[in-house]
């Protein structure tokens, strides 16, 4: 079916990674001047930008909640993010992912601090090469921290799956398409709770458990990268001010 195998005999993948290795991740915080908080993530070839606005007055006002803020999310793929031009109108898949991303971020935020307001999260996929929902969640969580919105924990997300019978971490688009199963996972690493868990494909219970464990490991690595990114942004800024 494929001209080239995705994983060779020594367990090295098409892009030179080991089975349990993440793609190189680059994180930048505060990239948009007009948003209250923003973050940019590059995970291999996937490039995602996330912006947070708020807490701000919600319009129309009748939608506002009397006891907490309303979290609104928009996951959107740019028309040029994939090989075949994608219509800019939100597709069924994007609408579902918007909901899923919102539910992944919601438990981390102290929404009850800002009644009758809205917190708006915009996730824009600039280039898609697999794992964009996870990259979006990772970036959105940093954007929330950048906006100064109190959160219980950072949310780190990563996918794992089964490709050619082997368990692999952080699937690319090619691996995802050829995979027997794919499990995107988001966790709050310090609290040890899962905020997003999806599965596409078929796995036995044992396989599922080891794939989730693999994904948790990936999320924890991403968490330390997130931490470093925040440190790079805020500790550096402070030193410039002090000089």
């Amino acid at each position: 079916m494929f001209s080239r195998k995705l994983i060779d005999e020594s367990g090295i993948r098409a892009d030179g990674r080991r089975l349990d290795e993440l793609r190189p991740i680059k994180l930048e915080i505060g990239v948009l001047s007009n948003a209250d908080g923003s973050a940019y993530i590059e995970q291999g070839k996937s490039k995602v930008i996330a912006a947070v606005y708020g807490p701000r007055e919600l319009h129309p006002k009748h939608l506002s909640l009397p006891d907490r803020a309303m979290l609104r999310c928009r996951y959107h793929m740019a028309p040029f993010s994939v090989e075949q031009r994608k219509s800019p109108a939100p597709s069924r898949r994007e609408m579902e992912l918007s909901k899923v991303v919102r539910e992944a971020l919601e438990p981390s935020i102290f929404l009850e601090y800002y009644p009758r307001t809205s917190i708006d999260v915009f996730i824009e996929v600039l280039e898609a090469d697999g794992g964009t929902r996870c990259a979006g969640i990772t970036a959105a969580s940093l954007a929330l921290a950048d906006a100064g919105i109190p959160t219980r924990d950072l949310v780190s997300a990563c996918a794992a799956g089964k490709v050619e019978g082997l368990f692999v971490l952080d699937l690319t688009d090619a691996e995802d398409k050829a995979s027997e199963a794919d499990v995107p996972l988001a966790i709050m690493p310090n609290l040890g709770s899962i905020t997003l868990l999806q599965m596409d494909g078929m796995l036995t219970l044992d396989e599922f458990q080891s794939i989730v464990e693999l994904a948790v490991k990936g999320c924890k690595q991403i968490h330390s990268i997130q931490r470093e990114a925040l440190k790079a942004k805020y500790v550096a800024v402070k030193e410039v001010v002090e000089e």
């Binding site: 807490p55 102290f110 950048d146 906006a147 100064g148 919105i149 109190p150 924990d153 805020y234 402070k238």
Partner: peptide
């Protein structure tokens, strides 16, 4: 636990810990 980005300040006299924020919410 911390809920924002900042630096820890421990007030030993009043036995209280708080965060000096690096960013403030709107």
């Amino acid at each position: 636990r911390s809920k924002i980005v900042g630096r820890v300040v421990v007030d030993l006299l009043n036995k209280r810990a708080f965060i000096y924020p690096s960013v403030r919410a709107a």
